[in-house]
Amino acid sequence: MAQIEVKKLNLSYGDFHALIDIDLSIETRMITAMIGPSGCGKSTLLRVFNRMNDLIEGVNITGQVLIEGNDILNHKADLIVLRKEVGMVFQRPNPFPLSIYDNITFGPRVHGTKNKKILDEIVRTSLEDVLLWDELKDKLHRSALRLSLEQQQRLCIARLTAVKPKILLMDEPCSALDPVATQNIEELFNKLKNEYTIVIVTHNMQQAARISQRAGFMLLGELVEFGDTRRIFTAPADKRTEDYITGRFG
């Protein structure tokens, strides 16, 4: 079943038409990767899914984005609820300058959880989700900023899973990490996809090929091709996709 249904989505910043007639269906509990050159609109598209573009001046969006049937572009959509359901991880890990414990309980507290026992439990399960519990269980009150970049990125994912979202958006989540940390995070995605729908934007085509089940290629604001990752990387239908993934693009 589709978790996110995008219908005839258009987005412009002032005169610049950043997304053009996007139709797309993102399936539940799968990893969907969006690839394309810089400026093709893939991050903009990702940011539509939790309305991060609202903050930019002069943005105009038309079309529909249905998440579990609800149009999130509707002005009545509750953004607090939306961003709890749809979490986002960024290029550079951005933990709060707080303890590991407080980073994870921040979200649940905002959503009204006060009970210490429940919060302790959330910290444990969230860190287990990202395979950090064993490493950090005795250091929960240390500053999150003292963690390695990979641990920080894992913590940022744990901070999302603490509020039990349905969808995880990842914008170049490994671009600040070395190859070993990248591989570890990719292993983590593979585990997380059993519980969450993941949409990842990446410049790293091999990463998209390795971890995703569905892939989309975007160019100049258009979704050129979307489908099974295996097919996109072995026998793409569109010449532009072929040129991009074989490096003939330019």
Binding site: F233, A235, T241
Partner: peptide, 9 residues
Amino acid sequence: HQPAASDLR
């Protein structure tokens, strides 16, 4: 080169 698409084929 970790080729893809027609190069891989």
